[in-house]
Amino acid sequence: MEVRTIKVFTTVDNINLHTQVVDMSMTYGQQFGPTYLDGADVTKIKPHNSHEGKTFYVLPNDDTLRVEAFEYYHTTDPSFLGRYMSALNHTKKWKYPQVNGLTSIKWADNNCYLATALLTLQQIELKFNPPALQDAYYRARAGEAANFCALILAYCNKTVGELGDVRETMSYLFQHANLDSCKRVLNVVCKTCGQQQTTLKGVEAVMYMGTLSYEQFKKGVQIPCTCGKQATKYLVQQESPFVMMSAPPAQYELKHGTFTCASEYTGNYQCGHYKHITSKETLYCIDGALLTKSSEYKGPITDVFYKENSYTTTIK
């Protein structure tokens, strides 16, 4: 009895394709271990004539594949690729409408935090270190965002349907971005203890939790000093293409032309909904596939993004 075979390709990165001759009487799992086709788990399936010449994702289970996976995804987590594939199996079914010149995501599976993050990423200057993220990001900007969303979920250790947080998501993504040249110098002034300067680099240099107003941050924000008295913390120097200011959701007025974009969060910790506000020729609110415009805006804002380049204080 002759062994019926077909020729397929296996890959971990969709760049390096490895030619395989597979036995049609055995499952993919018996031949390769966990195997995925377009995100779908085909591990328990036997090869079919229609699979001839198709590319299958496999887990990096030998040295060659491990090197290829690390170079593309910059992670050695053995569960990463499987999590990416199972997320992709959902995100490829989502709709990605162009809204006001940006790629958004039609609401499904509690994905409003991903839509808000995706919209924000198209408006701030950011370059990702893992080629996987950078490639998928370019495709997302062009309207094909399924891979990018699935990668975000995998890097953030999230599953489809789980509630997510924009600030946490951005923080994970910033860790995989090139923020080497970003720098922030802060000064804390206390009447009792004097003053202390701190220099922050990388992710810490672009994120701040405690106030939404970048102007206020430049002037000074009140913080408790270690001595128990009130101290003032203010920005001395900022070198970065953008800054992200966050605070627990509270009524906040966004003035046209003073910011790049913002995240609105309605609801409580267990259950809520994100919308995205962007400042173009007027203010726009993007909620999944829905767009509304207004000249002014007041609502429960939790993150505001500002364009920056270089700032030095005039406070002496």
Rank of each mutant, 00 (worst) to 15 (best):
F217M: 11
A146K: 07
Y72M: 11
T211I: 08
T260P: 00
H51M: 09
V58S: 07
E68N: 07
G202S: 06
E162F: 02
K95N: 07
K229Q: 09
L133F: 04
A136L: 04
S86N: 13
H256L: 13
V22E: 00
G39A: 14
E125K: 11
F9G: 06
D180W: 06
Q20V: 14
T169Q: 05
K54L: 13
V185W: 05
Y252S: 08
V185F: 02
I6W: 07
Y137V: 07
A140K: 03
M244K: 00
K316F: 13
A146T: 05
M85K: 06
H48N: 15
F128N: 03
S246T: 00
S104A: 09
A150Y: 00
N147T: 13
L153H: 04
L81D: 04
K218R: 07
K54Y: 14
D38S: 10
N16Q: 10
A132Y: 04
V166N: 04
C227L: 01
T211A: 08
Y269G: 15
A146L: 04
G33H: 03
Y214G: 01
V21A: 12
L151E: 02
R83V: 05
K307T: 10
A231Q: 01
F259M: 02
S181Q: 13
E68H: 07
M24W: 08
T232R: 09
C225P: 02
C190T: 00
V304Y: 02
L153P: 03
V42T: 10
N178R: 08
C193Q: 01
P47A: 10
Y274M: 06
H256P: 10
C190P: 01
T64Q: 15
I223F: 14
T211Y: 03
M170N: 03
T75Y: 06
K275Y: 00
A154P: 02
D109H: 07
W94H: 01
Q251V: 12
V22Y: 02
F148H: 03
L283V: 11
E204S: 08
D62R: 08
T35V: 14
T10E: 06
S86D: 13
Q175Y: 08
V188P: 03
I286Y: 10
Q230D: 10
P60G: 07
V206F: 02
K219T: 12
K280Y: 09
Q20Y: 10
L81F: 15
L121I: 12
K7D: 09
P78C: 10
V22K: 07
Y113R: 05
L121Y: 04
Y214K: 03
Y138F: 13
M244C: 06
S50W: 15
A146S: 13
E215G: 06
Q216V: 08
